[in-house]
Each structure stands twice: as structure tokens, then as C-alpha cells.
């Protein structure tokens, strides 16, 4: 749409800017403040410059939780995106049952995150949970509170359960927007199922998939409540992702300086990657 240039439009935006800035900028400045000072309580602060940043960037603890975070995000993206596309491709295009399916699929997305964690905890307990009991019954030793591999497996399965539907819903919306004429043309050309997917469906889904990947990246990168309730970051530190580590540092040990420095590094990484996605997304939209 052709937009009129009108600077007065700022008046419409001011309330939003004020409210969001109040929530975003003041806390952010608090974090910046802490990140450069040392305090021993009583509101006495000492200037520390960039020492905390150096400390965090060089600490093995941060490296470890960062690697865990990247690994987790990569794994769930690699599972959820192809799986979501596959399910969307299998769904029929129209009908009453499709609506029922979509509503049922959206159900996990609406459950409070601590309940998701608690639910999976109950579901995966080795002695009384359906999943844990079944795995043990078929002869595989499984206990997600003791075995790191089992903890990772459960956390990833939980995330797949929780969020694959998002990819399905978006991919399905993209697919429904393809006109029938495209498929008819492909049929006349004798195109294979695979060719239809690569040359018609995938390009048409490009836009929604960019958003799906952006959202899944963002949310998995700041995941906190679900794994915290499920495993508490354990066993040991094996499922301590960045947010869990940060909360441990800030609210558990009250190491405000390093925690603040870590927050800023963390936020900066998220912003950087999201900016790349955003640029891609806007490019797609202009086409």
C-alpha cells in the first residue's frame, strides 16, 4: 500500500513508545549499570569498567551453557521444522475435520509453561510416568533425573511436543494460499511429487517458514521455565541452558555484576541473529 508521509503520525505511536520504553529501557539501564560496577550491598558501588565482561566471556561456565544452548536450539530446529512441514503436507486442504485437527494441534501452545514442565515431569517419571514406565518396561534403562542423555532426550521431546504445532500451523497457512492452478499446471507437466514440493510448495512457504524459524529460534534461545521445572538444569549442569544459568547467577548467587554482563552479552547475541532474520523477512515481504 502507498503510505502517506506524515510526521504527525508520531502522536499515535507515543503511548506505545512510552509504555514499552518504561518497561524496556529502565531495566536495561539497570543492567548496564550493574554490569560495570561491583557492590557489596548497602547501595555502595565501585567502578569496574569492562572487567565483568572479560570475566564472563572467558569463563568456562558461560562457554559450556552457551554451547549447550546452541546445541539445543540447533537440534530442536532440525527436528521441528522438517517434522512440521511434513505434517502440514499430509493434512487435507479442506473440511470440518481439518479445523478440529488445527484446534487440537494448537492446544499445547496454550498451556502455561510451568505446567508443560510439570506435565512432562509426571509423564516421564521412571516409576509412575507413562513414558518413563514404558521405556523401562521394554528393557531400556531410563531415568531423566540421573542420566544426562535421558534428560536431554526428555527435554527435546518436550519441546517438540510443545512447539512443533507452531510450524505446522504456519506451514499449513502457507500451503493453503497456493492456488489450485499451480498444481494443475504441475500435473500437465508430469511433475513428480518431489518436484512439486521443491518448485511450488517450498517457494510459496518461504515467507511463513522464515517467521516460523525466527520464532522458534527466539523462543528456544530464551527457554527457561519448561526445562527448569522438568529437570532443574540437571543432572549436574547438563541441561543448564543460558536463561537457567543466568537466573542461577543473578537470583541464586546474587553475583549481580557478572550476571548483568552475561545478560547484555546474551541479549546482544539474540538481537544480532534476529536482526538477520528480520532483514530476510522484510525482503520477502517486499517481493
Amino acid at each position: 500500500m502507498n503510505k502517506t508521509i506524515k510526521q504527525g503520525a508520531w502522536l499515535f505511536v507515543i503511548p506505545v513508545v512510552v509504555l514499552v520504553a518504561f518497561n524496556a529501557l529502565i531495566p536495561l539501564m539497570t543492567v548496564v549499570n550493574y554490569s560495570m560496577q561491583e557492590t557489596f550491598g548497602d547501595n555502595v558501588f565501585f567502578w569496574e569498567g569492562l572487567r565483568w565482561f572479560e570475566q564472563v566471556l572467558n569463563s568456562e561456565r558461560f562457554h559450556d551453557s552457551f554451547v549447550r544452548q546452541i546445541t539445543f536450539t540447533a537440534i530442536i530446529l532440525l527436528i521441528e521444522v522438517p517434522l512440521g512441514i511434513a505434517i502440514a503436507l499430509c493434512m487435507p486442504r479442506k473440511g470440518f475435520w481439518v479445523s478440529v485437527c488445527l484446534v487440537l494441534m494448537a492446544l499445547p501452545l496454550l498451556i502455561p509453561w510451568n505446567v508443560v514442565g510439570a506435565m512432562w515431569n509426571i509423564f516421564a517419571l521412571p516409576d509412575i510416568g507413562l513414558l518413563g514406565y514404558t521405556i523401562n518396561a521394554i528393557g531400556i534403562e531410563y531415568n531423566f533425573t540421573r542420566q544426562p542423555f535421558a534428560a536431554w532426550f526428555t527435554t527435546i521431546l518436550m519441546d517438540v511436543w510443545h512447539w512443533t504445532s507452531l510450524v505446522v500451523l504456519l506451514a499449513y497457512a502457507g500451503l493453503s494460499a497456493i492456488p489450485d492452478a499451480y498444481y494443475q499446471a504441475a500435473k500437465i507437466d508430469g511433475a513428480s511429487r518431489w518436484a512439486v514440493f521443491i518448485w511450488i510448495q517450498l517457494p510459496k512457504m518461504k515467507r511463513v517458514l522464515t517467521i516460523a524459524i525466527l520464532l522458534r529460534f527466539m523462543d528456544s534461545f530464551m527457554i527457561y521455565t519448561e526445562p527448569f521445572v522438568l529437570t532443574g538444569g540437571g543432572p549436574g549442569n547438563t541441561t543448564t541452558f543460558l536463561s537457567i544459568d543466568l537466573v542461577k547467577l543473578a537470583l541464586g548467587q546474587f553475583d549481580l555484576g557478572p550476571a548483568a554482563a552475561m545478560s547484555l552479552i546474551y541479549f546482544f547475541i539474540v538481537l544480532l541473529i534476529c536482526w538477520v532474520f528480520y532483514t530476510l523477512m522484510m525482503k520477502n515481504e517486499q517481493q
Partner: peptide, 10 residues
């Protein structure tokens, strides 16, 4: 996109 964990304490 801001991780809520970053903002909890402030």
C-alpha cells in the same frame, strides 16, 4: 525477543 530471565531482577 528479550529473554525474560534478563529482565527478572531489574
Amino acid at each position: 525477543m528479550a529473554p525474560p530471565a534478563v529482565f527478572a531482577l531489574p
